[in-house]
Write a protein that binds this DNA or RNA. Structure first.
Lengths: 413, 413
DNA sequence: TTATATTTGTCAAATATTTTGACAAATCAT
DNA sequence: ATGATTTGTCAAAATATTTGACAAATATAA
């Protein structure tokens, strides 16, 4: 799809989203500040802000004093002007969360449930969504979209397949869109977590970084020039099948020494089962395990060599500003992974000025996927229409929802 | 740098560049066609095209018949409206080329020369540039910029260091800009080749692909969403230091089993020297070697195992539409690399619909670096001002040059 | 052959958005 | 108290695109 031409209306919409983004940035900001940051005139910003005030998306706060001149009026987001839902569907559990425009978590809950078809899933999550909206007294029209996180496990057919369960995440996203008439977005856990760190977390100042996610598989969420990068088929960052030991054991994918075989929750599960003879599953592998469990620490020490190769490959191929480590695991585990992997191998990440560690722990790893899921629609609505955020799959247009909420102040025709 | 606001002038400039790009695309195109493609009205396109006609950037060609309605007038680029220079600086050789706006090679030559300081290099290339312009009778004001390809060899200090030679590519680019007052761009060979394939070569239909370049080192030019990706410090794609054999010999970088140690011209040079006891250098390793030399083929057979791991890593981490193979080596060598590397390992590149080979040979590998070098300024001039093309280093603004040539029809103020 | 429909490129006018220049108000520094 | 600086806004000006209409040229159908 080639770039499109721009006309006046698009210009105004672009500028309006820009103003909204600046106010959302959280800094204490005035009309004049926005003018300086965007390069537009104070008058233009004034006009746009007036529309945002009329639409109740923005309120005026206190005066900001200090420095010469007339004090400026601080502009604040009305966080309750819009909301977004995030849903994470796992094997035996479905978690839902509602966030406001600023990304604050309004409500969060999960159910333990099993399912075997797409329709089963819809029957579970549709009432869940409606319940959350009812409980929080949220107008459904103010929901910009629903972000869905659901892994494909069946490599061949893009399906979520475990035992008897064979579901299609894309189809689920589409069905939910049709049922609720709310735009839906499908993304990987790693990419969602990366987005959450980028927009509200510890990666706000970066435009090129990697969120390395330790789940049942190892995967990477790639932030490239401020956008999530998915590649040809939204599968970029499949680091779990990186060959880190050419003489290693054959992986289920057919290749030798895949990284997944060394460091992943699947690999950890296998190890613990061999040790304890207790049946375990990857998504619940840390149940009843104390912090810094010696068995796990000693296992990590064995895997570190291969993990280092993975880090090195990411660094040499992506040259990221940093790698943020997260996943479905407790903080002590993530910390141990980083600690035991030091010193890292030599790579291009050592070069040039560097005031930042090469690998850092995601500060709130346990929340990032859920937050990221809910943030997907907001990010899409505020993003460029051309350089659109491209998720794995997307149904409906959250930007249109935003326009409607702005009371047709954009594109009022 | 956050996105900037847009105003009327920027809108017009954006649309004008868009129109120019469409006409440059090479298809037989009319005003109405451009209107359909860009989503702008016929009238707007008419206005913009008129300016391009006045500035002699575009001419009207024949009428396009067929289909109902009044025949449309085909618009053609005046290729001689603007030019661009590409310079590749190697150890003992400097090559220069002049291309027109369409990317056609107008003139091409090289000198064998040695140098030891930045000033030496400038003393060599400045007259070379002026000579080329004089010989081709090209107005220097019509040169949009100079693209420079020069490898950093000294990892620590970003320098080009071989024996006594210690030069700084960025400094050279800056000095040349100051001398000639023409914008200069510095880029890696792999990235330049990727750009050439993208704009005029075999990758015109892709937005995410990798140009894998076999030079003294192995390196990758990354095209991500239609833009060259360089990462934090323009070093992304350093695949030569990918660890492909964790138990392999220690590389000069300190890590075991780097890919460079298996497949690169440096590695080939070492192998041939051991075999023949004849001194060789990587940049001239194919001298006096016949096609499909059995020694080299047998060497390639040994390296294929590791090359496959490299391909697999690129595919799993980037999920490219394809990998294009090129480098400073003859066609038969590139073909042999691909042939002997089959079958490739399992990777995510096998998934989904795929009508394209996973690895293809660059059709004119020997020209791509030089063409890409010269194309850098053109691409920058036609690109977005915001989503600007970001090269390793850039001095001056080729877009301004283009505006000047357009006779201040953009930003005439 | 004639009539009709379709498409192109352009004209003039309308529309929409940003910029420009000026001004009052409020604060800080001297 | 005075002057300098900055903010937010007003009204007018500037600029680019769109709209609606039209003649011209072609293909298609009658």
């Amino acid at each position: 799809m080639p770039p499109k031409g721009t006309n006046l209306e698009q210009t105004k919409a672009h500028n309006l989203r820009l103003v909204l983004s600046e106010i959302l940035s959280g800094d204490e900001i005035s009309r004049a500040d926005i003018a300086k940051r965007t390069g537009l005139t104070r008058q233009t910003i004034s006009n746009l802000v007036e529309k945002l005030l009329e639409a109740n998306f923005v309120t005026e706060g206190n005066y900001k004093k200090g420095g010469a001149g007339k004090p400026s009026r601080i502009l604040q987001i009305s966080s309750t002007a819009a909301f977004s839902i995030g849903i994470r569907i796992e094997i035996n559990k479905i978690a839902i969360s509602l966030v406001d425009l600023s990304g604050n978590l309004i409500h969060s809950e999960h159910i333990n449930a099993t399912y075997s078809t797409d329709e089963d899933v819809i029957r579970l999550i549709e009432p869940l969504c409606l319940d959350v909206l009812r409980e929080t007294n949220t107008d459904i029209r103010r929901v910009l979209g629903i972000g869905i996180i659901m892994a494909e496990n069946d490599d061949r057919n893009h399906r979520h397949a475990v035992g008897d369960i064979v579901t299609d995440p894309k189809n689920i996203a589409e069905l939910l869109y049709q049922e609720l008439d709310i735009p839906t977005f499908l993304e990987t856990a790693a990419a969602a977590a990366a987005l959450a760190e980028f927009l509200q977390g510890s990666a706000r100042s970066f435009r090129n970084f990697i969120y390395l996610f330790i789940g049942p598989d190892l995967s990477a969420g790639l932030m490239v020039d401020g956008k999530i990068y998915g590649g040809r088929s939204a599968r970029a960052g499949s680091i779990g099948h990186l060959v880190v030991n050419i003489n290693g054991p054959i992986c289920s994918c057919g290749n030798p020494g895949c990284l997944n075989g060394y460091i992943s929750l699947e690999s950890l599960t296998n190890y613990l089962q061999k040790q304890d003879k207790i049946p375990r599953v990857p998504y619940d592998v840390f149940a009843n395990i104390p912090s810094n469990d010696p068995k796990i620490i000693s296992w990590l020490e064995q895997q570190a060599e291969y993990f280092r190769v993975g880090i090195n490959s990411l660094e040499n191929l992506y040259d990221p500003e940093t790698i943020i480590l997260g996943g479905d695991c407790p903080d002590w585990f993530l910390e141990a992974v980083i600690r035991l992997s030091r010193p890292f191998m030599r790579s291009i990440s050592e070069r040039g000025e560097r005031d930042l560690p090469r690998v850092i722990k995601s500060p709130h790893a346990d929340q990032m996927v859920q937050k990221g899921a809910a943030t997907l629609p907001i990010h899409a609505a505020l993003g460029e229409e051309n350089a659109a955020y491209k998720s794995q799959a997307q149904f409906g247009v959250s930007y249109q929802r935003l326009s409607e909420l702005l009371g047709h102040y954009i594109n009022e025709k």
